[in-house]
Computed example of a mutant assay.
Amino acid sequence: MRLGGGLLVALAAAAAGAGWWLLAGLVLAAIAAGVTARVPEPGDAQVDRVVVAVARLAEVTVYAIAFGAYVFPAHRELAAAAFAVVVTGAGFAGLKIPTIVVRIAGVLLLLAGLVLVVVCVAVPPVGRADGLQPPDFAGVLVAAVLMLPFLRPGGREGAGRRVLFLAAVAVLAAFAALYQLGAVRLGLSLTSLRDLLSAADADSLQPLLTVVAVVATVVPALAAGAGVRARAGVPGLAGIAVAAVAAYFLPALPVLVVAGLVTVIELLLGVRARRYSEQRE
């Protein structure tokens, strides 16, 4: 479920820096997610707990920004801050969505994504102002960092297959968006997926995109709120307040960068925890 909420804003941010090489960044992020799929969670040291809590809060802020931009565009900042407090706070308080509901929602999001891809590829783009430029390795690396948090699987059972599946979905969605809008136009708008439907002459699907945005942000934000409580305890409430302030004042790009970098640190701490466990054995 992370992927759906992340793609709402991360595709535009990554395309702004990498252009068509966003696809290479996605592949790089998928490789990193696959290689580290079986890395355990960081340990219970104070630094480990703080890093994991910050990683979940950064993801929450991304979902909040996406929710505000797609669902309440006229009051984007206020809606984003309220989302961070209400939805993440509910997850922190222990509200859980039944597993079967989460799975059904995941299937519906997948179907909606496939419909979007088919519509965008089937309708020829009106024009394309940009093409494939020489590779910008820094842009590719940044794109990979931005996408990494949302390509990581939720568990380690069958993690490799799930990473491969998530990567395929992300690449298809990115290709459809780049094909229909071009990299420049895709990278210009926070709500570029709405522009994508308009460009594909599919404005009738805009209400469906709103529903997708709600489901794709609320479900992972609830889970992230539970993760903050597990790692930070009551002080995590202060973190939720910080996330709300960040969602209100900050644009998506710096929040995505923080989420990506903290995810890298989280993975490194997981590697350290595994080595420590192996040494003890």
Rank of each mutant, 00 (worst) to 15 (best):
G4V: 10
G5N: 05
G6N: 08
L8D: 00
A16D: 02
G17V: 08
G19K: 08
L23F: 07
L26I: 10
V27R: 02
I31P: 00
V35Y: 11
R38C: 09
Q46D: 11
V52H: 05
V54T: 07
A55Y: 04
L57C: 06
T61V: 13
A64I: 10
I65L: 08
F67M: 14
F67W: 11
A69H: 06
A74H: 12
A82T: 11
V86Y: 06
G94I: 12
L95Q: 13
I97G: 04
P98K: 14
P98M: 14
T99L: 15
T99M: 15
V107P: 04
L108E: 12
L110T: 14
L110R: 12
A112K: 04
G113P: 05
L116I: 08
V117C: 01
C120N: 09
V121F: 10
D130T: 15
G131E: 15
L132Y: 13
Q133L: 15
A138S: 09
L141D: 03
A143M: 03
V145R: 00
L148W: 00
F150P: 00
P153S: 09
G155N: 14
L164Q: 03
V169C: 09
A170I: 05
L172Q: 06
A173T: 10
A174W: 04
A176Y: 02
A176F: 04
Q180S: 10
L181I: 12
R185P: 07
L186Q: 07
G187W: 06
S192Y: 00
S192I: 00
L196R: 02
A199C: 14
A202H: 12
D203P: 03
D203I: 14
D203R: 13
S204N: 13
T210N: 05
V211S: 07
V211E: 08
V215T: 11
P220V: 05
A221L: 07
L222W: 07
A226E: 10
G227N: 12
V228W: 01
V228K: 02
R229I: 09
A230Y: 05
A232R: 09
V234Q: 10
G236R: 07
L237K: 11
G239I: 05
I240W: 05
V242I: 14
A243R: 06
A246S: 14
A247F: 13
A247E: 07
P254R: 15
L256I: 12
R272N: 00
R275F: 15
Y276G: 12
Q279F: 13
E281R: 14
